[in-house]
């Protein structure tokens, strides 16, 4: 009987020191709010930071019996079937149980492996991985790099371990910060204005559209004209998505005054090098997996500009982007003495 020893892909195991050494959170991002800290963590960590890099694997022509031995000896429940970094399938404990049941243990693994696979990309944020674990019943996902090469495997346990570790560090930081904080006077209330602010987190597509939806609801409550409310919601959505997919995170602010609604989106960079290019219809720097979800059509800024009565972008590369859209609530009065046409 031939004896396959499991292939170990190159690369090192991510260790806890590496995780700890990650850049600390931007103090502004904390805003004293622990849920923001958690959201930031979910976005900042990428699948590659958390996955296991030492992936055991088995070639297609190995037998179920050999797969069983590797699974048992390594205390794992699933084994990628791969050759030269190319992933062909996954053989799991369940397949082995079936094999034992039906007397298939001397069959080759490619006859019984799961071959239509859901995979993650190494560059995806951890929030994506969590969403996948939620939406599929699989306990682990193979991880491919941008060249579709198998580079790791990620289980719910890997994600939890890394997050718990990092969270405890962040919580200690927050506690220290709160202790240092001197009570600050409340800002003077702006009686004529209604103002609300939403934190928008980088790559949190699960929450994307939440601020725009709340804005639409608030406008409905405030009895803002339906068609104006819709224009405002369109701009709010596009700017919220832009902070989410293109920036390191930021805020969306709505101010309602007597005669106008202003939506401002401000983020912490990376900024827009060529604003004129970015505002053109159809130009986008969104990556493939963002595009595969229907974002990145390159129409967000032009959509916002079209629906707004006033539109402005300011940006400094490496620092910030600030987009302001304002909407008139009342028709402008005809100038006194003007002739009706």
């Amino acid at each position: 009987m031939s004896d396959y020893s499991p292939t170990i892909l190159q690369g090192q195991q991510t260790n806890d020191d590496e995780i700890l050494a990650k850049t600390p959170l931007d103090a502004k991002a904390l805003g004293g709010d622990s849920s923001v800290v958690i959201m930031e963590l979910l976005q900042r960590f990428k699948v590659r930071d958390v996955m296991k890099r030492q992936v055991l694997s088995i070639p297609r022509k190995a037998t179920l019996r050999e797969a069983q031995r590797i699974l048992r000896e390594n205390h794992i429940s699933g084994l990628p079937v791969s050759e030269d970094g190319r992933l062909y399938g996954i053989i799991s404990v369940n397949d082995i149980i079936n094999g034992l049941d039906h007397g298939w243990m001397d069959d080759t693994v490619d006859m019984h492996m799961a071959s239509s696979l859901v995979v993650l990309e190494a560059g995806m944020p951890i929030s994506f991985a969590l969403r996948y674990f939620n939406n599929y019943t699989y306990g682990r996902f193979p991880v491919l790099d941008s060249n579709r090469q198998l580079v790791g495997i990620i289980s719910q346990r890997d994600v939890m371990r890394a997050l718990l570790y990092e969270l405890s560090v962040e919580i200690r930081k927050l506690e220290r910060k709160t202790a240092d904080k001197v009570a600050q006077p409340a800002p003077p209330s702006e009686t004529h204005f209604f103002r609300r602010e939403w934190a928008v987190v980088h790559n949190d597509l699960t929450g994307a559209g939440r601020a725009a939806n709340e804005i639409k609801q608030l406008l409905r409550e405030k009895k803002v004209d339906r068609s104006v409310a819709r224009r405002i919601a369109v701009a709010a959505y596009e700017l919220e998505i832009n902070i989410c997919i293109h920036s390191h995170g930021g805020v969306l602010v709505m101010v309602i005054s007597d005669n106008a609604v202003t939506i401002t989106a401000k983020d912490r960079g990376p900024g827009i090098p060529d604003i004129e290019w970015a505002c053109r219809d159809g130009t986008s720097t969104a990556n493939d997996w963002i595009r595969s979800l229907g974002f990145g059509a390159g129409m967000g800024l032009s959509n916002s500009k079209r629906v707004a009565d006033f539109f402005e972008i300011e940006s400094e590369v490496g620092k910030f982007t600030k987009v302001t859209c304002a909407f008139n609530l009342k028709k402008l009065e005809a100038p006194a003495g003007g002739t009706a046409s």
Partner: peptide
């Protein structure tokens, strides 16, 4: 009518009606 089978499509539906 779309192929976008994910949560963000629902957000868009809600916003445009």
């Amino acid at each position: 009518v779309t192929i976008q089978n994910h949560l963000n499509t629902i957000a868009v539906c809600t916003l445009v009606g």
